[in-house]
Design a protein around this nucleic acid. Sequence first.
DNA 1: TTTTAAGTCTATTAACTTGGTAGGGAATTT
DNA 2: AAATTCCCTACCAAGTTAATAGACTTAAAA
Lengths: 135, 135
Amino acid sequence: MLSKKSQYAFKALEYLTERYKQGPVLISEISKKKKIPLKFLENILLELKKEEILDSKKGKGGGYFLAKDPAKVKVATIIRIVNGPIAMLPCVSLYFYERCKNCDEKKCGLHDLMIEVRDASLGILENRTLKDLAH
Amino acid sequence: MLSKKSQYAFKALEYLTERYKQGPVLISEISKKKKIPLKFLENILLELKKEEILDSKKGKGGGYFLAKDPAKVKVATIIRIVNGPIAMLPCVSLYFYERCKNCDEKKCGLHDLMIEVRDASLGILENRTLKDLAH
DNA sequence: TTTTAAGTCTATTAACTTGGTAGGGAATTT
DNA sequence: AAATTCCCTACCAAGTTAATAGACTTAAAA
């Protein structure tokens, strides 16, 4: 399941997508409009900035804004940043791969199945962007 | 991600699938062969019994065994029992549905997307059984 | 140049979840 | 009756999540 943090992130990004190219938006404004705890939201936006999804401006007239075209930001990318792996097992994760202990990937029945599930999910998540979320 | 408990469950079920119709198998045997902490495994098997995936026999010659044909036990069912929801959001879960607070499902962009992802995953998980995991 | 308005950063905390343990109790077979 | 095996309840430590606090930095405006 997506964490609450992830849901907050998507709500904030939705808000910023609606205001793309309209200048910086205050954290406090997003917090109020989307009912996200202010300080928690700060952390989330900062993280998204470090990953270059968002950019920001300090001081008066400052705020956060999308660093790129919302049609270029994949949903999968956001999930990986704020929620972690999309795969159901570490041993089939593309970006967070970890070998299974006590389990030979060659003859693990779950392994192949979970690759299928991963690919089915990614087929969708890698092909949808922030723009699609807004519609 | 699937919890360690879920991975243990699948390993145990794999073992029991190989021994389907061959009489009860000791918890301690599964524990040893599959390297699963004994007491933890007890809890898992008991839970699977309560959900009628497994059955058991007490006393000498006792143990656990599959309650039905492994070809009839869906992977999705097991995941729901030991891991919980398959969907990425409570508001799109079929078996663990919960309404989103502060989010109108009608106009939530994530909602529709997550339904797609759910259906893609279920398309696989509802059509694979314990038997498929073994081969 | 001072003030004010922002975002930045580090640390802390409370609640919850996960993984694992302990120790009898109950049923069944011999 | 004794041995064997699952059943059940409770507990605990560690980690994660959600949220908060407060001081710091940068930038614009007065």
